[in-house]
């Protein structure tokens, strides 16, 4: 028992040391900024935020801490944020999940109750297959589905990836079963063992398998080719009008003061240009896609509307 206390106490002291070290020279209106994520510790958004908070603190001039508010795929986090004071002390790390949760489960507080702040990244979503499979191009996969029946995999039900595959299926007018899983790992196994012809996911999730040569990339859903894979065609180039933008940004409560927004717009551009941070996020295959406040707000609104239309047309929601 005593040992843990010492450990915890020791670590706490360490943390305070870090916070003190990061302390401010600029005058951001509050001392501590809390970034909320609905992802569990160690999950994708969590790792991204904790990495970001290290570099962001000194630039923003405030201590940046990460808090995990889990439950309801973001519903709990949205409720928490929507009811907080808009003084720049609390933000929510947004991914498409918060829009899907808002539309699908109709919680008390939705994405429309939050104010989008800025966007950091767009994660490229790629189509991949097992290196042992007979499919060399996306066209091979589509042909297979046209002749018989395709089996394609998305990591989660009612997610951006699922939507992308359903749209691809419609654009190519083929017969394919879109199989959903409990996360990227499950999906990866079923692609590796040949149960599925293709899977869709972020590059960072399959990085290790790509390097080991166990997976082959077929196409990317991004709007232009990826720097890291210049030979990889986009789905759009191949003749199917599907573009997917998995954004990573921040949102705050409604009514954020202008100086807070301005401080963030400056800080985010600076942090994205930071050499060390750049090396870190590029290694993780994140693509910087800074959007200032106004552009991002419009982007979220459009994204929400498109998703709503898709979900309505497919009959998932009323």
């Amino acid at each position: 028992m005593r040992k843990q206390r010492i450990l915890a106490a020791g670590s706490a002291v360490f943390m305070f040391g870090m916070i003190a070290g990061a302390n401010a020279q600029e005058d951001y209106p509050v001392d501590t900024v809390t970034l909320i994520t609905h992802s569990s510790p160690g999950g994708g958004s969590d790792v991204f935020l904790r990495e970001l908070s290290r570099y962001l603190g000194p630039i923003l001039g405030a201590n940046v801490v990460v808090e995990n508010v889990r439950g309801g795929s973001g519903a709990a986090a949205m409720a928490n944020l929507a009811q907080s004071t808009p003084d720049g002390s609390k933000f929510y790390a947004t991914t498409p999940t918060f829009i899907y949760t808002s539309l699908l489960s109709d919680p008390e507080y939705k994405y429309t109750d939050l104010e989008p702040l800025v966007n950091f990244f767009i994660d490229p979503e790629v189509i991949y297959t097992s290196a042992n499979s007979e499919y060399q191009t996306l066209e091979d996969v589509i042909d297979h589905a046209r002749e018989g029946r395709g089996q394609w995999g998305a990591a989660n039900p009612a997610s951006l990836e699922r939507q992308a595959l359903e749209q691809l299926k419609a654009a190519a007018d083929v017969n394919a079963a879109v199989v959903t899983h409990e996360g990227g790992g499950d999906l990866l196994i079923n692609v590796l063992n040949g149960t599925l012809q293709i899977g869709v996911g972020e590059v960072q999730e399959i990085q290790s398998q790509l390097e080991a040569g166990e997976l082959r990339l077929l196409a990317t859903f991004s709007d232009e080719r990826l720097e890291a894979f210049p030979d990889l065609p986009t789905v759009e180039e191949l003749g199917y009008d599907v573009v997917v933008r998995k954004f990573r940004g921040l949102a705050g409560p409604k009514g954020l003061p202008d100086d807070v927004i301005a401080a963030w717009e400056r800080a985010v551009q600076e942090v994205l240009a930071d050499e060390k941070y750049k090396a870190a996020y590029e290694a993780a295959n994140l693509r910087a896609a800074y959007m200032p406040h106004e552009e991002y707000a419009q982007f979220i609104e459009d994204f929400g509307n498109e998703t709503r239309v898709f979900l309505k047309e497919s009959g998932v929601i009323e």
Binding site: R70, G71, G72, S73, A75, A76, A79, Y100, T101, L104, S105, D106, P107, E108, N156, P157, A158, S159, R162, T180, V316
Partner: peptide, 16 residues
């Protein structure tokens, strides 16, 4: 499979 909600009766606590 579909990601829709079942037996949650509008409660966000029951979503997951």
């Amino acid at each position: 499979v579909t990601g829709g909600t079942r037996f949650t009766f509008g409660s966000s606590e029951l979503l997951s």
